[in-house]
Design a protein around this nucleic acid. Structure first.
Length: 161
DNA sequence: GCCAACGTTGGC
DNA sequence: GCCAACGTTGGC
């Protein structure tokens, strides 16, 4: 099956691209939305690539790329009553929430901000840009993925003016 | 099954 | 800090 592309959000105040770069790999935990979970359990494959997106940041932006390195597994934070993601309805025998393992691939030379993506003609259909879209894990097309990566690899996007 | 109330996300 | 949009819960 062909490689697919994703966008995954994290608030940099809790986990940033630099944290991932340092750790190299992490379990993408804390997802508590069924649609986002289903992407991880049903659709993601090891080897897929994802844009790392900083939400609630200034500015919100795509900041790098990671690789899906491990299939979905139960998210341990759902069982931990001390954790803010604790879910009392979940048990180890019947987990509700899952996470995939991700591996750092690259950090962009510069962030590709939300307004920049919004102003880009070829990115208009990105799930991220749709009104009211809050999905923390979402598919992106290969083309969208490539465009964002290309924008992120340029040091001086404004110089072409 | 409907829908009001509530909690959360996330841009601004 | 505000608030629009969304998802979930629970009464009926």
């Amino acid at each position: 099956m062909a490689k697919r592309f994703w966008l995954m959000k994290s608030e940099p105040s809790s986990f940033s691209i630099d944290d991932l770069r340092q750790k190299k790999t992490t379990l993408w935990d804390g997802v508590r939305n069924y649609q986002a979970r289903n992407f991880m359990t049903n659709e993601m494959k090891v080897g897929d690539e994802a844009l790392f997106y900083h939400s609630n940041a200034d500015p919100p932006a795509a900041v790098g790329v990671m690789t899906i390195s491990g299939a979905a597994e139960p998210d341990p934070t759902q069982f931990d009553s001390e954790d803010s993601h604790y879910d009392p309805k979940a048990t180890p025998g019947r987990p509700i929430w899952y996470g995939v393992r991700v591996k750092f691939k690259s950090k962009f030379a510069r962030p590709v901000s939300l307004p920049e993506m919004r102003s880009h003609k070829a990115l208009q259909k990105m799930v991220l840009l749709q009104k009211g879209s809050r999905l923390s894990i979402q598919p992106v097309t290969e083309k969208e993925f490539e465009i964002v990566c290309k924008l992120g690899s340029k040091k001086n996007p404004e110089s072409k003016k």
